[in-house]
Amino acid sequence: MTVVWVVAYTLLSGGAALSMVRVWRGPSLLDRVVATETLLAIIAGGIAVYAGLARDPAVVPVLLVVALLGFLGAVSVARYVGGMLIKSGTDDGRAAGLPPAAEQTVEGR
């Protein structure tokens, strides 16, 4: 049983560490959003693994909160970034990107 604990949490924390590498390295805001959402899903998985292995039902409501928080955060950041887009002068269907000031604070490292 100890082996199962160690293996499961080694895998989960490896995934969490790699997601945090992506949060750190960026390069864009959306990469960080994707990585943060994955990190939240991995945290939810860790809580569920604890609940299952320890047979502890007390932590299960936390799962619902974490799942909903990940969704709300990703959607609100996506809407926020979408609102900053400038209408493109070209006609290839894509926006011109962010205003220069926002591009610096968001993407400059």
Partner: peptide
């Protein structure tokens, strides 16, 4: 549980 944990690592 272990299969799900493997998928978490694959995501990373």
């Amino acid at each position: 549980l272990l299969l799900g944990s493997v998928m978490a690592l694959a995501a990373g």
